[in-house]
Design a protein around this nucleic acid. Sequence first.
DNA 1: TATGGAGATTTTTTATACAATGTCAACGAT
DNA 2: ATCGTTGACATTGTATAAAAAATCTCCATA
Lengths: 218, 218
Amino acid sequence: MQTKGAAAYSALREAILDGRFAPGSRLTGQTLADELGMSLTPVREALRLLATQGLVEHDPHRGTRVAPLAPESIEETYRLRRVLEPMACELAAQHATADDLAEIEAAMSAFASAVDDKRHDDLPELNAILHHRIYAAAQSPLLLEFIDRLWLRIPFQAMSLVRHQEQKTAEHQAVVTAIVGRRRKAAGRAMLQHITNSTQATLARAKAMEGGSDQEVS
Amino acid sequence: MQTKGAAAYSALREAILDGRFAPGSRLTGQTLADELGMSLTPVREALRLLATQGLVEHDPHRGTRVAPLAPESIEETYRLRRVLEPMACELAAQHATADDLAEIEAAMSAFASAVDDKRHDDLPELNAILHHRIYAAAQSPLLLEFIDRLWLRIPFQAMSLVRHQEQKTAEHQAVVTAIVGRRRKAAGRAMLQHITNSTQATLARAKAMEGGSDQEVS
DNA sequence: TATGGAGATTTTTTATACAATGTCAACGAT
DNA sequence: ATCGTTGACATTGTATAAAAAATCTCCATA
């Protein structure tokens, strides 16, 4: 079983990304501890972790509040994604082991099947797994960690808007094919294209719902 | 007065970077608490913070140990530096405020003066300040954090080898001039050149001293 | 001799109690 | 009437103690 600190962390993280806490609202330790059915200590730990990841802001002796996630921070996230994730794909095309490739293709099939079967609820998870496996194949732990940090800032939630899934599948397939074929530059270009397309959709959607919290992912 | 958690953090951080704890050695909470003259709680907090920054590794119920920085990770560090730091320079050229530019030029002068006066001991510090101010001007907190992470992996220490300081000054000056002149691409190129040159020196030096710990920086 | 496990020990994790600090409202002075 | 001060209150920071988990030791057994 995971530690309570970890449990508190994921619970709070999910709650914040789901928008269950209004941005800027205060998070008092004891209250959260009561709600989560645990003591103050693990809750504090979770809050400190969230603070280092920028999801909450903490001032000594003054408390922690959920970070008001500015629209420009979404832009920042995607700017970094456009640089780091294609880079990871290039490295993956160079350095992926046979095992890596097998896992990537398995994740690709799983995603494609879910699209075919219209299992829309599974898509965010499968999408995340596919991306993560690709990046892991780059054999660059620090780069992987940075990318993970970026993904922490992408709220999953509903992800109910499942239009264009066929296009996303095609884009994913292009990336995977390039990596398996060891075509370094092509892999990077394909991922850049994929992210650019997603960005368009996300920013448009974010603007449309104006302050709404769920977004297009991947 | 700062909180004890913060005090513990900086104390441990400095100790680790100074090499006072051997990489891979175990950091047990109670022991550290005794040495620092405080209780376990703030020490734990500090350790968690250090873990998010990659200076220590933490496994649940198994303890935390100082991260063993692998030699191949030097290469990884520089690969990411070559991407992220030029990117930050481009952004700085676009978004730096008047205050940012003033601080950058002040840091530039300070570095140049130190070179002229042969105050070699001050150079690593001044170099770090200059770089950091440039990156801070990019107005991209997350990018700044990533770059800080990279710099954590560059051991400072001796840095006694102070050859080529005139060249480094010239390279710095080129970056600063481009940023002040709002020449985005030129700023990125100049920094890339600077880092590439440093990389050559660093890797050569690292290979030469084979396992030695101090390196050419910037 | 090698192996496997029960108990002891160490270390981490969590809970609870206490201290320190900041906030806010009521009050008084200018 | 406004501004500053004081004190009660709420909340965070720290210490200490108890609980849980992992590791280690050592002996019995194959």
